[in-house]
Computed example of a mutant assay.
Amino acid sequence: MTGDLTLPARGLLFDNDGVLVDSDEAVTTSWSRWAVEHDLDPAAVMAVVHGRRAADTVADLVPADRRAAAAELIDRYELEDAHTVPPVAGAAELLASLPARVWAVVTSGTPALATARLRAAGLPVPGAMVTGHDVRTGKPDPEGYLLGARLLGLPPEETVVVEDSPAGIAAGRAAGARVLGIGVRALGTGADVVVADLTGVTWADGVLSVPASSELRAG
Rank of each mutant, 00 (worst) to 15 (best):
T199P: 00
A68H: 02
F14T: 03
R150E: 08
T2K: 00
I74E: 12
G181K: 13
P126L: 02
G18C: 14
S214W: 12
V210C: 07
E143G: 09
V184C: 12
T137V: 15
V62F: 01
G51I: 14
A55H: 10
P87Y: 00
D134W: 13
G122N: 14
V45K: 06
L95Q: 05
G3W: 11
T110A: 14
L216S: 01
I182K: 09
M1T: 01
L20R: 04
A171I: 10
G3Y: 11
L12M: 03
P86R: 03
G168P: 12
A175I: 08
S108Q: 02
A128L: 05
T115D: 15
R66S: 06
A100P: 15
T137N: 14
L20Y: 02
S165H: 08
D75Q: 01
G132P: 08
L113G: 00
L152T: 06
V58L: 11
P87S: 11
P155C: 09
T199N: 00
P42C: 04
P99I: 01
D41L: 00
A82T: 02
V88W: 05
V36T: 12
V36L: 10
L73W: 05
G3S: 14
L94M: 11
G183E: 10
L20W: 02
A59G: 12
P99H: 03
G168Q: 13
T189L: 08
G127V: 07
D60H: 01
D197F: 06
T159V: 11
P87K: 04
T202L: 11
G122F: 13
L216N: 01
G144K: 09
G132Q: 06
V195C: 03
A121C: 04
G18S: 13
P166C: 07
H50E: 09
E93D: 13
V195T: 01
A26F: 10
V195R: 02
T199H: 04
D60S: 02
G183N: 10
A43N: 08
P87R: 03
